[in-house]
Structure formats: C-alpha cells, structure tokens
Design a protein around this nucleic acid. Structure first.
Lengths: 276, 276
DNA sequence: ATGTATTGTGATTAACTGAGTGAACGACTG
DNA sequence: CAGTCGTTCACTCAGTTAATCACAATACAT
C-alpha cells in the first residue's frame, strides 16, 4: 500500500491547482473518510484543529465540501468526480476568458524590423520546447529530420504529429542515439526511416563532468532548427530541458546544423542539398 | 477603447492561473507588442526594468515567451492561442492526474452512521450550489419544483438539465418572482408550467436593510430541498451566494419547505401530497 | 580613446501572505 | 456547577514577493 505517496501526490496537485496547504490536506483527509468533524480531519491530516475551520470554509466556497451546522459541525466532501469537474471547469473557464481578453488587447507597434534571419531564440522547459516542436513539425512542407536523444521526448503525441506530416508527403527521417530507442521508434512508425546516429558527440559529451545530454534535434525543410538539451538537476527529482531555435536558410545555427547532420546521417546526403 | 480594463482583466486572469504580478504584467505587455526588450516591457507595463528579466525567465520556462540572447536581449511572446493552449493543457493534465490519485486513496472508515435524515448541509459559492443543483435535478424521478429568484441562475445549462428531466417524465414546475423573468423562462421551456409566485417573502424581504434575496429554491420529489440566497457584497463587484440543502421526507427543512410551497404555488396542491 | 548612456546581475529592504500556536469564549455533559 | 469539547480570534514567525538601489558589463558617440 503505497498510499502514503498517493496521498502526498494528491495534496501536491491540489496545491498546484491553487489551494493552500491546509486546504489541500483537509480536503484529502475528508475525501478519504467521506464525512467527519474538525477533529477527525485534524487527526488524519497534519492540520491544526483550530485551522481546519478556515480551510473548510474556503473549500466550501469552491464547491468541494459541504457543511452540516450541527454541534460539532460535520463536514462532507463531494464525490471525487464532482470535485475534479468543478476544479477543471473553473480553470477552463478562466483560460477561455483569458483567450478573449488577450486577443482583444490592442497592439502597440514598435519598430517593425522583421529581421528574421540570424535570429536565435532560446526557450526552456519541457512545455515550451514541446510546443515549439509541434509547431515546427506542423509547418514542415518537404523534409523533417529529427534526432531523439532522450526517450522521454518520444511521446504518443509526437508520433501522431509525425504521422500527419508523412501524410502531407513530408519526408521524415528519424535518428536515435542507441539501438534500443531505435527499435521503439521503428515499431511506432513502421514506414519511417529510423537509424542510429554515428555521431559520437550526440550521445556522449566530449567533456568530463558534463551531465547534459542532447534531447532533441530537429531540422525542418533545411531552414529551421531546434536543438534542446536535458540536464539532470541533481537536487530535485526531475531535470530541466532547455534549447534554442532558429529560422532562415542563412541563419548561422541552421547552416551549421545542416552541415553536421549531413555528415552524421546516412540518407541526408543527396547532392541537391548543398546549395549553400 | 476600454482596453485599459481589458488589459487589467488579462493580468488578473493570468495571476489567478498561477503567475506572479510581474510575470503577468510582463507577459501582457509583451503580448501587445509581439517583441521587445526589457526596457520596452518596463515602459508599457509597470514592472521595474530590473525585474523584467526574472519574470521573463519564468515565462520562458512555462513556454509563453522566447528569448533572443543578443544585446540587448529581445523577448517575444508566443501567439495567444499557443499560450492559452499551453496553460490550459497544463491544468487539464493536473486535474486528470488529480482524479487518479484521489480515487486511488484508500478510505478510512469511521463510524458508519448513515443517518441521512434530519441532516442539513450548507454550501456556499455559485460553483458548489450550481453543481449541487444539477445533481439534484439529475436525480429527480417524479417531481421537480424550482423557484428562480435571481435571473443569474437561469443559465443555458440549467435549461438543458430541466429538459432532460422532462424527458424522463419528471413533472417540472417552475416559479419566478416577477413576470419579466417568467416570460423569459416560459420562452426557453415552452412545455413547462411556469408561474409567478404569490408569496410575498420570496421577492421582498420582510426586514428592512436586508439586501439578501432568494436565489434558488428547489424541491425534488418532495424529499430533497435546496435553498440559496444571494447577497450583494457591497465592496467588491459581485456578490456571494450561499445556501442549504437537505434530504429525507422527515427532514425538518424539507417538511417546512413542502408546506410553504404548497401554500404559494398553484399546482402543487393535490390532495395526495399531504401524507405527512 | 574616453566619457556617457544603456543593459544585465545581484544585493537589500519593505510589505505581504501563509503556517503554526495559544488565549478566550460559548456550548454541551456529567 | 465544573469540566470538557468545539469554535473563533488574535498573534508570532517564516518564507515569499514586490520594490529599490548599487554596481559591473556592454554598447555608443564624440
């Protein structure tokens, strides 16, 4: 019974969703016993009895708890589904109204120098990088070279996006760093060319004491590039992903990567390519 | 151009979604001008220039902003749709994983006194009351008496739920406090009996200086009741709704309400009713 | 080359929020 | 009537965030 972990996770999630520590703990305690008094809740959570009341009041106003005004008061948690739906709809509501207000902002136009070339943008966090990756894949029209250096990035969603690209007649080439991952990818995308890169530096850093590994490397139509690396942050459990992304055939980063890919990947080498 | 309000609303929403004040302000400023330096952002928001950098870093890790590491650094906001989708999927993810962890909690069983009678639960907040209302309507099998005392509660969703109840052969009776509202309701639900209550206390409080009005009054199968009231909180813009809800034919609250309804509503008076 | 304005980082302080604790008061029990 | 329990309220302490300043690094103009 690893329910200790489970419970802590629920508390953590509730806090991420905007509840205070006491509120989250009280709710979880109450959800486990369906109904209970302030004392009951205080016993099964680590919330001081005197503060349970405040916490419950907040939970009640959010529609997660109901109160029986007897003496002693008895509290009751709504069903899990009801609670989750309530929270979820609250957030969907907020994001939708955010969408409206944001698109309703009137723009301030500064100097309109649309100097897209030579730009290199940096992004960080799995969220943003995944999003940018998707966008690039969706925008591909001819060729798509993707090197996966970290199994974590090979998600179902990614597979789906790649398949859509293939259906748009985009040539999809996928590289991996080891044979195990290659097999996984090949299984998921049978019709796609998948290989293990010969490039040493992709899988192993030439520097000692470097716990950063290449995570993704994406070249779209030979004119847009995204590279990301993954660092195991020793302290907390999960690491941090950061990357750069550039666009434009003349872009320095794009040019370099194009060359690197050409040397390391088998089928990228067709003569027509090297028009630089 | 009431964009001042619009902008403030966007900032407010972003903060509710977990961003800090500086982060929200920076993002909105950046979203308005598509790209800009720290100075630009500081000028169009009220964020001290020296703090823009921290804010942007956080935004970047959330996938809302990209950075060009030139000198001076240039920041760029992702598109509105992309930003909103990122935020939304983040929360949907969290709620779904919350659903799992919550339903995976092992219950603690206390004293199993399922003494449902005589219980009166109190709930507060539009969220919870609406949810409980829906649940009660869905559970109705024979009769459903609903008095609407505040136009705000008469939503499209409510109409839908009531129609579903009708299709289950539940007798639906709806009361209102004024004739204007009656017409609105009757239009939305043509096949349903809608009337204006004769009960004076429903629409006007007998006490002076009482800015609380009845909001909803729901009697389900004559054995479950929900009453809610609405108070204009003078300070902030919107008011607060609070209510009580009870179940069981013997329940005091239910019994009283049953009597009250019988005296105030025309068609609730069939002899078979008064079996108490 | 030199002075000046601008950019980015870090340190510091003030204001605020939330966690944690205890006093006080009323309700109920024996 | 005393003692226990339930509830609210007021308060302290710690951590976080907002806000300002000082300083180093860089670009820019003369």
């Amino acid at each position: 019974m690893d329910d200790i972990t489970n419970q802590e996770q629920a508390i953590e999630l509730l806090q991420q969703l905007g509840l205070k520590e006491y509120e989250a703990k009280s709710f979880v305690a109450l959800a486990r016993r369906q109904r209970g008094t302030a004392k009951d809740i205080s016993d099964t959570s680590e919330v001081p009895r005197t503060r349970v009341y405040d916490a419950i009041r907040v939970l009640e106003s959010k529609g997660l708890v109901e109160t029986q005004h007897s003496n002693p008061q008895v509290f009751r948690a709504v069903s899990v589904d009801e609670a989750v739906n309530t929270l979820q709809s609250e957030y969907v509501e907020r994001t939708e109204s955010l969408r409206n207000t944001l698109s309703g902002l009137d723009p301030i136009d500064g100097d309109e120098q649309t100097e897209t070339t030579h730009e290199v943008w940096s992004i960080s966090g799995d969220q943003g990088i995944t999003s940018r990756t998707r966008q690039l894949i969706e925008g591909a029209t001819e060729e798509l070279i993707l090197v996966i250096g970290h199994e974590g990035v090979f998600t179902d969603q990614l597979v789906e996006q790649l398949q859509l690209a293939r259906e748009r007649d985009v040539k999809v080439i996928i590289g991996t760093v080891d044979d195990e991952l290659r097999t996984t990818v090949q299984d998921a995308l049978p019709d796609t060319e998948v290989f293990v890169s010969e490039l040493e530096w992709l899988s192993r850093s030439p520097l000692p004491d470097d716990d950063t590994e290449i995570s993704r490397l994406l070249l779209v139509d030979r004119e847009a590039i995204l590279v990301s690396s993954f660092t195991e942050t020793t302290a907390d459990g999960r690491g941090h992903e950061q990357g750069v992304f550039g666009r434009g055939f003349d872009n320095g980063l794009v040019a370099i990567t194009r060359r690197l890919m050409a040397t390391g990947l088998p089928s990228v080498n067709d003569p027509e390519t090297e028009r630089a």
